[in-house]
Design a protein around this nucleic acid. Structure first.
Length: 463
RNA sequence: GGCCCCGUCGUCUAGCGGUUAGGAUCCAUGGUUUUCAUCCAUGUUACAGGAGUUCGAUUCUCCUCGGGGUCACCA
């Protein structure tokens, strides 16, 4: 069975790049009927917070990614790590190193001065002399001194490292006894039965270290997929300083989770020319072997397009519900269907849509000066007056077509173009020259309010 | 700097020895619309460079250049 995982460290919100690797892992597990597990890497107590863990879980809920089994917390697994540490010590595959921090940095400085690679010199590797009493030792693992380490990566292909270039006996437990990252990752991935590790390629150079741990503990290696980074506009690794990288920020801005997911799944991955993927299609078609080798630049132009698409295809019921987060209450509005139908193919985000709703249902507080100048000239006011008179005598005005008929009648009688009435009417109703169809606007706000707005404009606008 | 990865339109990408190098987005233009938006149509724009291999290279190899990642008692 395929088992994948997402293993964030809870130091902040869920990052957009994190969500993408999580999505890839999720999809691959789902496609294979396997499991997708969540593991919180909270070994560094100083930097972790419960709030961050909650934020990550909340983001998963919002986008609709579910995980199997219970969440694994590394902070709850200290005895397990201790046991494996002890095992390596007993087997002579790891050892205590009594080199202090100062001593270590001295060594490093010497090496740098000599233009050598900075590395631990192995002085306690097979040490049997007198051990310093005043120092808490770290535990180091015996790493191969030479030879090739080859990763059979599902994305990068065969990546070969020479042990002498990159390895030394690295620390697997700090002097306070706590295990380090490269050790716990390997232990947990193995113990949790992870068969495919899908993660950012910034971990590629960590992989040989983890392989050393796998080897020492006699665990089977998982299949690795190192997915290329997402870069910012400057071409650097996307970081928290690059604006909107918090997944939940997209919720606030009015993006739909299906749009975000669709956007993310196509960043670095493709399936022929297909651009639109429903959640089901993603689960069905995703394959990590189709992931691109090169990094991509984060650019949300396409996200806007996707979001507009998904808004257009959302039901009015869903939209009305989602809009409530923006202070829009439409449940009791008798013309909400007409309004939503008119607005949903105009908005790129829910936030935009909320603004549009307000622009229709609330009386304009001011009139755009340019619009007034353009629309309120000549006999504009006279035309509006004629229009209101026609409206007044009508009953049963409900549909946009009812209002359209009135406009058409007026235009025909006067022998004028639609623009003659449309422009000033638009300014009167909405305060500006753009917006949904006027017949729709009037149908939504009703005859009384329409007349009121027109009269306000006639008296309130200097022409 | 060492090691590793990467290099097709501005951006996301298809391509897997022979293509007028395709799609999407963005942008521009035209059409539709009383306006704006949507929608539809059309258009501009790309194989980093140089050697090889080959009848033939975007595709394979090497070099150069460019970009990125990583080198902790952080994860």
């Amino acid at each position: 069975m395929i088992v994948t995982r997402f293993a964030p460290s809870p130091t902040g919100y869920l990052h957009i790049g994190g969500l993408r690797t999580a999505l890839f892992s999720y999809l691959w597990a789902r496609k294979n009927g396997g499991k997708f597990l969540l593991r919180i890497e909270d070994t560094d107590e100083r930097r972790n917070s419960d709030a961050a863990t909650q934020a990550i879980i909340e983001a998963f809920e919002w986008v609709g990614l579910d995980y199997d089994d219970e969440i694994t917390y590394q902070s709850h697994r200290k005895e397990i790590y201790a046991a494996y540490l002890q095992q390596l010590l007993n087997e002579g595959k790891a050892y205590y190193c009594y080199m202090g921090k100062e001593e270590l940095s001295e060594l490093r400085e010497q090496q740098m001065a000599a233009k050598e690679r900075t590395r631990y010199d192995g002085r306690y590797r097979d040490f049997d002399g007198e051990v310093p009493q005043d120092i808490d030792p770290v535990i180091r693992i015996k790493a191969p001194l030479n030879g090739a380490m080859v990763i059979h990566d599902g994305i990068k292909g065969e990546v070969v490292f020479q042990a002498e270039d990159i390895l030394d006996d690295f620390i697997i437990a700090r002097s306070d006894g706590t295990p380090t990252y490269n050790f716990v990752v390997a232990v947990d991935d193995a113990l949790m039965g992870i068969t495919e590790v899908i993660r950012g390629d910034d971990h590629l150079s960590n992989t040989p270290k983890q392989m050393v741990v796998y080897e020492a503990l006699g665990f089977d290696l998982p299949k690795f997929y190192h997915v290329p980074m997402i870069h910012n506009q400057q071409g650097k690794k996307l970081s928290k300083r690059d604006g909107a990288t918090d997944v939940m920020a997209y919720k606030e801005m009015g993006y739909l989770p299906e749009a975000l997911l669709n956007f993310l799944v196509r960043l670095g991955w493709s399936h022929g020319d297909q651009e639109l993927f429903s959640f089901e299609e993603m689960c069905d078609l995703f394959d990590p072997n189709d992931i691109n080798k090169s990094a991509s630049i984060y650019n949300t132009e396409k996200l806007d397009w996707l979001n507009a698409h998904y808004i257009k295809n959302s039901s009015n019921t869903t939209l009305a519900m989602l809009l409530e987060a923006y202070g829009i209450t439409l449940v009791s509005h008798d013309k909400k269907e007409i309004l939503l139908d008119a607005l949903k193919d105009r908005a790129k985000t829910l936030q935009e849509m909320a603004t549009m709703v307000n622009e229709v249902i609330s009386t304009p507080k001011s009139y755009d000066t340019k619009a007034v100048k353009k629309a309120f000239k000549g006999d504009a006011k006279a035309i509006l007056e004629d229009f209101t008179m026609k409206l007044q005598v009508r009953d049963e005005m409900h549909l946009p077509s009812d209002y359209h008929d009135v406009m058409e009648e007026l235009v025909n009688e006067k022998g004028i173009g639609f623009g003659k009435i449309g422009q000033p009417l638009r300014v009167a109703l909405l305060g500006k020259l753009s917006g949904p169809g006027l017949d729709t606007v009037m149908a939504v706000i009703g005859k009384e309010e329409s007349v009121r707005r027109i009269e306000n404009a006639i008296t309130g606008i200097e022409s």
